[in-house]
Write a protein that binds this DNA or RNA. Sequence first.
DNA 1: ATATTGAGTTCGGAGTAGCGAACTTTTTAA
DNA 2: TTAAAAAGTTCGCTACTCCGAACTCAATAT
Lengths: 109, 109
Amino acid sequence: MTQNKLGVRIKALRTEKMLTLDQLAAASGSSKSYIWELENKNPPRPSAEKLADIGKALGVTADYLIGSDDQTRTEAEDIAFFRQYSGLPDDTRKVLRDMAESLAKMGRK
Amino acid sequence: MTQNKLGVRIKALRTEKMLTLDQLAAASGSSKSYIWELENKNPPRPSAEKLADIGKALGVTADYLIGSDDQTRTEAEDIAFFRQYSGLPDDTRKVLRDMAESLAKMGRK
DNA sequence: ATATTGAGTTCGGAGTAGCGAACTTTTTAA
DNA sequence: TTAAAAAGTTCGCTACTCCGAACTCAATAT
């Protein structure tokens, strides 16, 4: 059973978040059959749009899912997080910045 | 002639680097006719692989080229925040990401 | 003037992305 | 148990990606 990197990554993230094919499909605007094909069929060549939508639903970048560059999963999550953060309203961003400040102090100990 | 965002971004980067269609095609392993179609035809839906290759040749990520979210002209405050965030330990960053997720859900409705 | 070169543009077609619906397997309920 | 629901898998089809090759239009050379 030869697996492709993209499929492995999607499946890992999906199962980790305890999502079914149907749930991820709904969250990303795809069909469950197609999600399954991405995870199991080789070699998949999804559109950038689809992959970005799926990445968004999983909290990572499309670039990480393709694995074309050497973006680590942590980086992908951080970048995806920063994008989400950037899109939040001003006051919500401030709440997060304050929380970060507090957490930073705690960690400094 | 209304242009699509992806096309505009590719063309901007290509002309900025003074590359011809042929040159960018060669550098990214595509055909020049296809590069032209991406820049001018609507609506294009290139594969993530192609887009990552083109992005690589242009020095940007596929995620940026898709630009599903609006171009991030980020304020200094936000950038500073991200720097601070990046310096935090893994588990603390996760706490913040989870908080952001909750806050984002709240704001969504 | 008219070749040559280099840029962008058009077009037909092979192959596949991505879907819905039907099917099979696993889990839950009774 | 076994019925029903949920999860995963298969399949056929349409629409679109992406290519090569031919074309147009300028600019520079001869």
